[in-house]
Design a protein around this nucleic acid. Structure first.
Lengths: 181, 181
DNA sequence: TCCCGGATCGTCTGTTTAGGACGGTGCACT
DNA sequence: AGTGCACCGTCCTAAACAGACGATCCGGGA
């Protein structure tokens, strides 16, 4: 009864996904992650097998094992788990993620910005377009508020990257303040 | 003689910093990271002791040990190390980092965007201001090209975050496309 | 001189994440 | 019944993270 399970972002991802699903197998989670959440917060699928086990041990999940066949493990929230999730969601955070961008890291150390821009721009543009497509499909759906907001954050982000790298391509040497809309 | 030292971003950070410094101790690196690079790509200081060791074993660095006193370790690049760094810098990457933002993660799972905005906005604004201050000091310095660009990337991102969260504070329920300048 | 305190500098340990290799299971199609 | 492929799960190694802890240096006071 140590109750000493430390809850990391990974834990809350699992809790959050299972809450939304009601009951789910790790493989289900993997699918969902691949489809939506993985776009801005990815994790190795092995985690989605290991973490529910940990959470079950900590009393946040309960496990039901399929009788025959693959003997899948189905997880759902316990009261403890639901409470932990609620508490986490209710607590706003001032924490700020870093850029941690490989291309920028290289540029920082002296890589040629134009070459980097040439590699980054198409990828960023494609991503932006993909997100915008998803947004159109998601815009009507109700109850998609959270994911939709996250998506929009992703979109504005990608746009900034596109602007940034586009600016590098032109080789702007002086003031690169983009006042465009 | 396996020469099989895998080089990770952390490795290149160490190589890059040591190249810039000529010769440096882990503690020196730690200082530099805290001051500049850590703003967008942080790492635990223990890494800055462990990694040079690994790199020395792999032939990318050479180590000189202080005689008396603290017996500090001074590292500098070998030909191999310099070559590896150059090669890495010359190779543009299309890799795109994820947002991986805690606040967005919470919102995704249903946290209240306005509360989150209230927590995020001041922090983001402060960071943006801090960066802009640094930019003013750095703008004149020559040879600061790379770091300056990285800084500017950081600035535009912080601004986007500020816009994004500011939009949430107003509780815009319909179209939140900000055409502001 | 000796001791003390804080700043400087370095090491160590446990846990989580990353990333992928690899192995079973079940179904569809012959 | 056999075979191939998609589905599903486990395992392993290396790296990153986070922070506790220890040692060294230096200045100031007893």
């Amino acid at each position: 009864m140590s109750n000493e399970t430390r809850l990391t972002p990974t834990s809350y991802i699992v809790l959050g996904l299972i809450e939304a699903a009601g009951e789910a197998t790790p493989y289900d989670l993997k699918q969902v992650v691949a489809r939506s959440l993985g776009n801005f917060w990815s994790l190795p699928h092995a985690q989605l097998y290991a973490e529910p086990e940990r959470l079950t041990a900590g009393g946040h999940l309960e496990e039901r094992r399929e009788e025959g066949g693959r003997r899948r493990r189905y997880y759902k929230l316990t009261g403890t788990g639901r409470a932990a999730l609620r508490e986490w969601l209710a607590e706003p955070t001032a924490e700020m993620t870093e850029l941690r961008d490989l291309a920028i890291l290289k540029v920082f150390f002296g890589a040629d910005p134009q070459q980097m821009a040439a590699a980054q721009l198409p990828a960023r543009r494609a991503k932006a377009a993909e997100y915008e497509e998803i947004e159109r499909n998601l815009a009507g759906v109700e109850g998609a508020g959270g994911p939709l907001l996250a998506l929009r954050a992703g979109i504005v982000h990608e746009r900034v990257w596109v602007d940034f790298w586009a600016g590098q391509l032109e080789g702007e040497s002086t003031e690169g303040r983009s006042g465009e809309g």
